[in-house]
């Protein structure tokens, strides 16, 4: 029983990180209607900068700088590349983000080289703690708490601030909201910045021995992949759904890793995604698209 509870805590902790990623992904999708395949490289660039700064300024400053850089990277992708091809088809934009992803991935991997695996979770990585009589890794608990706070803050902002209102209005109808005086570029740009920042926070937990595994930051791009099925499970258009999707993916991953095999865990995530899509083609909370021809 205690193993099972442990697995659940691990799954929720991992799931919270995936939820952060999937939430950023969905925010970006809602604002630009673009699948951001470069989300994994936002993770990577934030982690890389944090890792580079860490020896000089300490963990906390490095973490803050990393998050900031990831946010700016998101902002730049939108402002420099996407804003200039607004009229292109969504598929072209998706392929564009693939190109960006390939560029950042190869460059950061080259810079990291083959030296010792970089880790970012200094204050909590590899430290066990007692929780209600269970022994769990501290990373999962910290990740869960941080993610809960951030996601809570996001939904409060989304519901009550004018920024959230603008964002919801724009995703409802771009033209109408622009006619009502909402500056659409600000909403779009801020969505990318928020998505980037969330990715920058997620990497602080991904590049750890507990979640990311032995190669730390090097594998975080691959691990962050799970954010895509998470967003799909929740429904691409639903921020709340993405959080649920993230937790589902985290739990599926942890349960499969414990009771079947570590390799099967990744397959399990995609199997869950396929099952969900079979039952609900637009994801659990996604809006079924109805286009006017």
């Amino acid at each position: 029983m205690s193993t099972f509870l442990q697995v659940i805590v691990n799954g929720l902790g991992q799931g919270a990180v995936f939820a952060l990623l999937a939430l950023g992904f969905v925010i970006i999708y809602k604002a630009t209607e673009t699948i951001n395949f470069a989300h994994g490289s936002l993770v990577l660039i934030g982690g890389y900068v944090a890792f580079a700064v860490k020896p000089h300024l300490g963990w906390l400053v490095a973490a803050l700088v990393g998050v900031l850089v990831a946010a700016i990277a998101g902002l730049l992708i939108e402002r420099v590349l996407l804003a200039h091809s607004r009229n292109a088809s969504p598929d072209s934009l998706a392929i564009l983000t693939i190109g960006v992803d390939v560029i950042i991935l190869t460059e950061v991997t080259r810079r990291l080289g083959t030296a010792a695996a970089p880790f970012l979770g200094d204050p909590y990585d590899n430290k066990a703690m007692q929780l209600l009589g269970l022994t769990v890794s501290r990373t999962y608990v910290v990740a869960l708490v941080v993610a809960a706070i951030l996601i809570g803050l996001f939904f409060l902002a989304f519901r009550y601030t004018s920024w959230g209102l603008e964002m919801r209005a724009q995703s409802e109808n771009r033209e109408a909201s622009a006619l009502m005086g909402i500056r659409s570029w600000r909403v779009t740009a801020s969505a990318w910045a928020v998505g980037g920042a969330l990715a920058g926070i997620a990497v602080l937990f991904l590049a750890t021995n507990d979640i990311g595994g032995g190669s730390g930051l090097l594998s975080s791009h691959t691990v962050a992949f799970a954010a895509f099925p998470a967003a799909i499970i929740g429904g691409l258009t639903s921020p709340g759904g993405s959080v649920v999707g993230g937790l589902v993916v985290g739990l599926a991953n942890a349960i499969a890793a414990q009771y079947v095999s570590l390799d099967f865990a990744n397959v399990a995530v995609y199997l869950v995604m396929l099952v969900v899509l079979l039952a609900r083609p637009a994801g659990l909370f996604g809006k079924v698209e109805q286009l006017r021809v």
Partner: peptide, 11 residues
């Protein structure tokens, strides 16, 4: 729809 398909095929 296309957006879902891209991710599912990636998976």
């Amino acid at each position: 729809r296309g957006d879902y398909l891209a991710i599912v095929t990636l998976g």
